[in-house]
């Protein structure tokens, strides 16, 4: 693998030897926290691009007109890693650019035409799903390290069942003309994949936040102040 991305200073933080003796550590000046609009813009744009890359991976057709894609994985990951606001903005950016006609949706489509497809409900729920996943992750990140994976996966799954599935079913009823039980049965097809994708998203989030602990200042595990 190339070392193309090796120039990240936070790696120095992740890998620097913790100062061994406690008195010296207490004497260290506090890190300077500063607003980083450039980094936030880059993170939002990158996760939007990641959702697009997930959507561009060839989908698994299911026969109902709604293919299984990795999109929801990207959506939940954006919420879990970036938190509610930046997660929402990342997925909203993806949605807006796609609706403007750039082919970043599943099957390399784009444009307002997707609003007529049976999958419209799923697509429009994505920004909300990222926001809810981000909110739930604030709770999940307080879990002890060995439960954190499960807690984050549960947060992602919770967000998915609060937003994506209800909206998806509504879209199926509206655009594909299915009645509610039939739409529900179509939706159930996605449940196993959803569980797998959220377990994966939880694991990835744990790894990413360990590599870059300052990504989520809203959920940092801090030592209680004396």
């Amino acid at each position: 693998m190339s070392s193309a991305f090796d120039d990240t200073t936070t790696d120095e933080a992740a890998r620097a030897q913790p100062t061994a003796d406690a008195p010296r550590e207490a004497a260290l000046p506090a890190p300077r926290e500063r607003r980083r609009p450039g980094t936030d813009v880059a993170l939002v744009a990158t996760f939007a691009a990641f959702v697009a890359a997930c959507a561009l991976v060839p989908p698994i057709p299911t026969g109902s007109g709604v293919p299984i894609t990795l999109q929801t994985f990207g959506v939940v990951l954006a919420g879990l890693v970036l938190g509610p606001l930046r997660g929402f903005l990342a997925v909203a950016l993806y949605l807006v650019v796609g609706l403007a006609g750039v082919p970043v949706f599943a099957e390399m489509t784009g444009g307002l035409g997707v609003l007529g497809k049976p999958s419209v409900g799923y697509l429009l729920s994505f920004p909300l799903a990222a926001a809810v996943a981000g909110l739930l992750s604030r709770v999940a990140l307080r879990a002890p390290l060995r439960w954190r994976w499960a807690a984050l996966a549960a947060a992602g799954l919770g967000a998915s069942f609060l937003t994506v599935h209800p909206a998806g079913i509504a879209g199926l009823v509206w655009r594909a003309g299915l009645d509610l039980p039939a739409a529900f049965l179509v939706d159930v097809v996605y449940w196993p994949g959803d569980v797998v994708k959220n377990l994966l998203a939880g694991a990835v989030t744990v790894a990413v936040l360990r590599a870059y602990p300052d990504l989520r200042p809203d959920a940092r595990a801090r030592a209680p102040r004396p």
């Binding site: 991305f5 990240t8 980083r36 609009p37 450039g38 880059a42 990158t46 994966l200 990835v204 790894a207």
Partner: peptide
């Protein structure tokens, strides 16, 4: 996981480098 975790960590690293570059170019 072996496939996605390294890709995701690199992706975030890339985003942060890009953020640094944006800041260095005076954007923001």
């Amino acid at each position: 996981r072996a496939l996605v975790v390294p890709a995701a960590v690199r992706m975030v690293g890339h985003a942060r480098s890009t953020g640094d570059a944006l800041a260095a170019r005076g954007l923001g």
